[in-house]
Design a protein around this nucleic acid. Structure first.
Length: 867
RNA sequence: GGGCGGUUAGCUCAGUUGGUUAGAGCGCUUGCUCGACACGCAAGAGGUCACUGGUUCAAAUCCAGUAUCGCCCACCA
């Protein structure tokens, strides 16, 4: 091949889109089209990005990891399915469209009405869904677009209705009045997991409440407080009896309070006495339930005070609070104010406004009800069980504990939302009659206006996307899936719910392994945010450095469960690497007579040949083993090292002076491309196509792992490398002109033969004009000699080595190994050890002892010669 | 309040079940236009592996404690 056929630098922009098109048109993203007989399937359900979102670095890392795995499995000959989709993200999408309509037309959703509004949302989603889809493609994602799903598809709606129906029939779903998290802004409930607590400083008031003093940060809720609660063991209040009535003056006049004794009270906090507001506080609600107390609503669902507040009725909380305090102060009921009080306030993670606990009738999933189908277990117990007995493995393992803790403390799950966009609750009413499931025949049925929590439908994702509740071929072939790869931040929202839903509805685990990646932070470890202006946009890095470099920078150096810092410099360094790989290929393609595929393992002719082939074997083995164990970063690092530090730095250099290496160069390159393909698919595919083949690298079989690896070749060549480096070093330090002849005296005759036979390589790599090698037991002469001792090389040139330091090191080593040798000898004399230990262990210890003795002898000899 | 994680080179991080001289990228120093590559090549400097104690022939790695940074869960009126 001529020089001009291949550009000097690799330009990803020129090829990425057309390569993706080629892959897509090949049809091989769809496992049904893959060649050969493939028995095993491997499925990944893609965590669906929000349909209205744009690709961010979190998506990029998830796509990079999943594409890596699915490409590897495809090359391993599996029916590899990566099923993509998008999520309707109910609350986020609805509020976004609401905002847009408000801005453009100054209308609210109520002005439009439910039907018209939903139409607008759908239009918006339709247009925006393509954006994210194209961005997913930019990363090189080899997912099966023919099976793409959207969480609101008709089929998926059917699945949701069926799931709801089954759960309702098993009495897992019930409707009831419970305290829920109400967002007065968005006018909907949110689940416990969506609530985020933010620390805030606000005044803490102490009011006189009859003979007591009560503390509160929320005076506006106190109108209806007629129960005063204290701990039964609190000696300060031992004179008050449970149920005792006390008349007292309160905000809007005299009331009668009732004393309640309850252990939920923290005696240490404040005065140890509090009044309760069961309608607007979860803990108070529980106390009220326990003692069967009255509950009264104080604040309406818009966040305004109700008529019970008398003159404050209709006032928003913010406005009312200072006035109420003012009034109490005027009545002499304000005892004191703590202005430095810090406490946590509840906010909605989807929208950010304050959460007001309210009592409301909602649909719930009972997580504790024992189910016949699950062998008398509750869905919670079942979900715990499958992870406890390792049917599902969570990586990293420490998240299993977190998962258990969350499940064990899980309360009933509120699944109804008062928003319009989403799966509508499949319950139908007509007078007193209630039907669940599909719309009943006949006129006059009205559907429940609420929609379901997004995570209810997302929980079905692994199987609803494969056709459930129909018994489809896909469901049979591809479920359970093998890998669930997602961020650790949604382990509760999503992972746990998929496990619950799947084990209950399909009676299968949804996936075998959960791989949790970390958050991507900026180079200083801060979260990426608009306000810090530290966002790294994967679309930008793809544009500037290529998709391969972007992928590599996200894959290498990231370990499961740990956050990873990302910087543009890192992407740039992998762009450099991709270019290096490109140039190695460029060199090989130019050097060989005919660039073709080499199918048979070539015969090595020289030590360097044996070495590079052995290194390749070792790399293949390591890569395969560790990809199976999901150690992606380690594998990437090792292939990187092989490519740059072994192939490019050594073998390519050797090949410049040795001929007839075409088959080996091509064979190594071709296998290296295969190993790299799951990490950086574009550049590898482009190079592959220059090997005069019509085949796609994407579906090439993964390199076979050799059972026998020539370790001697590796050892021998490493010695040659050491010698070359030592000579180069010698030359740099002593600033010798290149024409100078060098004489090398090998003191240890053990390696003399090897070095002699490889002296040409040494000469070429060290850029010597001439080199003389001789084996001798004599001490080396002055300055320009080198001596080889055992496996180590010492250059007795001034400044090269600190003899004293070296002697110390060797002495330390000698004493360490002698002690170890003694220890081993004793162990091998121990009767009990000999009787009980397995034979191979004993053998291993014996070899160890032998090795140690040999090493000790060499070390002692070295030490002597240095002295 | 409960739980978890980090602390390794100037910076950002690896370190695979304890085992030669603790690694990489970026940055730094010196020298290189040799036909694959300056997005490069060669050589090099730089680390008490947070601290203290313990287990072991052997500890960055295992155990206990301390310091410090961070995360998650619960939530207090």
């Amino acid at each position: 091949m001529k020089r001009d056929d291949i550009a000097k630098t690799y330009d990803p922009k020129l090829v990425e889109d057309s390569i993706y098109k080629q892959w897509e048109e090949s049809g091989f993203f769809n496992p049904d089209n893959l060649p050969g007989t493939r028995k095993k399937s491997f499925t990944i359900s893609m965590p669906p990005p929000n349909a209205t979102g744009i690709l961010h670095i979190g998506h990029a890392v998830m796509l990079a990891i999943q594409d890596l795995v699915i490409r590897y499995q495809r090359m391993q000959g599996k029916k590899a399915l990566w099923l993509p989709g998008t999520d309707h993200a109910a609350i986020a999408t609805q509020s976004k469209v609401e905002r847009l309509i408000k801005e453009k037309e100054n209308k609210t959703k109520h002005d439009l009405g439910r039907e018209k509004f939903l139409q607008r949302v759908e239009e918006y989603v339709e247009q925006s869904r393509n954006t994210i889809k194209n961005q997913v493609k930019k990363m090189g994602s080899s997912c099966d677009w023919s099976r793409e799903r959207f969480t609101l598809d008709a089929d998926l709606n059917k699945a949701v209705n069926e799931a709801f129906k089954q759960m309702y029939q098993d009495e897992l779903i019930y409707r009831g009045h419970r305290i829920i998290n109400w967002d007065p802004n968005l006018q909907t409930t949110v689940s416990d997991d969506e609530v985020e607590y933010i620390e805030e400083q606000s005044p803490f008031y102490y009011f006189k409440y009859g003979p007591f003093e009560i503390g509160t940060s929320r005076p506006e809720t106190k109108f209806g407080d007629k129960y005063v609660v204290m701990h039964p063991d609190d000696k300060r209040y031992k004179d008050y009896e449970h149920g005792q009535k006390i008349d007292l003056e309160w905000i809007n006049g005299p009331i009668t309070a009732t004393v309640i004794k309850d252990k939920a009270i923290d005696m240490e906090f404040g005065t140890g006495v509090m009044t309760i507001t069961p309608w607007h506080d979860a803990v108070d609600f529980e106390i009220a339930e326990r003692h069967n107390l009255d509950k009264e609503q104080i604040i309406d669902f818009a966040g305004k005070l109700l008529p019970i507040a008398d003159e404050f009725s209709g006032m928003p909380i913010k406005e009312a609070r200072p006035r109420i305090v003012e009034k109490l102060k005027a009545k002499g009921l304000l005892a004191k104010v703590d202005k430095n009080y810090r406490h946590n306030i509840a906010t909605n993670t989807r929208g950010g406004s304050l959460i007001e606990p309210q009592i409301k009738e909602q649909w719930f999933v009972d997580v504790n009800k024992k189910i016949k189908k699950l062998g008398g277990q509750s869905i919670k117990e079942k979900a715990l069980g499958v992870v406890k007995n390792d049917d599902i493995k969570i990586l990293p393992e420490r998240f299993e504990k977190i998962y258990f803790h969350w499940l064990e403390n899980l309360r009933d799950w509120c699944i109804s939302r008062q928003i319009w966009y989403g799966h509508q609750v499949p319950v139908w009413y007509k007078g007193d009659k209630v039907e669940v499931g599909d719309k009943p025949t006949g006129a006059g049925w009205k559907q429940d206006p609420d929609t379901l929590d997004t995570w209810f439908s997302s929980g079905l994702w692994t199987f609803s996307t494969l056709g459930w509740p129909e018994k489809t071929k896909d469901l049979k072939t591809f479920h359970p899936t093998q890998l669930m790869e997602t961020g650790y931040d949604i382990i509760f929202f999503w992972v746990a719910r998929m496990i619950i839903m799947s084990t209950y509805l399909v009676e299968e685990i949804p996936f075998e392994t959960v791989y949790l990646h970390g958050l991507i932070r900026d180079e200083r470890g801060r979260k990426m945010s608009k306000s810090l202006d530290n966002i790294i946009d994967p679309l930008d890095t793809i544009k500037d450095y290529g998709a391969d470099a972007t992928r590599l920078s996200l894959l290498i150096g990231s370990t499961p469960g740990n956050d990873m810092n990302m910087s543009e410099a890192k992407v740039a360094s992998y762009r450099n690497f991709v270019n290096k790989l490109w140039n190695i290929s460029r060199y090989i393609l130019m050097k060989v007579e005919r660039p073709v595929l080499v199918t048979k393992s070539p015969k090595p002719k020289t030590l360097a040949d044996r070495w590079i082939l052995s290194e390749l074997d070792e790399l293949t083995e390591l890569a395969t083993k560790n990809l199976e164990k999901n150690n992606f970063s380690l594998v990437g690092e090792k292939i990187y090292e092989f490519t740059w530090s072994k192939l490019a730095d050594w073998y390519v250099e050797v090949s410049k002076s040795e001929d007839e290496k075409d088959d080996i160069l091509l064979f190594v390159l071709q296998n290296l491309l295969k190993l790299w393909h799951p990490f950086c698919p574009y550049v590898t595919e482009v190079i592959w196509q220059k090997l005069n083949t019509d085949s796609l690298l994407m579906i090439e079989p993964w390199p076979k792992v050799k059972t026998k690896i020539d370790k001697q070749a590796i050892k021998d060549f490493n010695l040659i490398q050491e010698i070359v480096v030592a000579i180069r070093n010698l030359r740099t330090e002593s600033k010798l002109p290149p024409s100078k002849r060098l004489k090398i005296v090998i003191v240890s005759p053990k390696h003399a033969k090897l070095i002699k036979s490889e002296s040409d390589i040494i000469k070429n790599l060290a850029r010597l004009e001439d080199l003389e090698v001789s084996a001798s037991a004599k001490k080396p002469a002055e300055s320009l000699s080198a001596m080889v001792l055992g496996a180590e090389i010492y250059l007795p040139v001034s400044g090269m080595m600190d003899i004293g330091k070296e002697v110390k090191r060797l002495e330390k080593e000698v004493s360490r190994i002698s002690e170890f040798t003694l220890h081993l000898e004793e162990k091998l004399k121990n009767q009990r050890f000999l009787e009980r230990a397995p034979k191979d262990i004993i053998a291993a210890e014996e070899t160890k002892l032998k090795d140690n003795k040999a090493q000790l002898a060499i070390l002692k000899k070295n030490l002597k010669s240095l002295k």
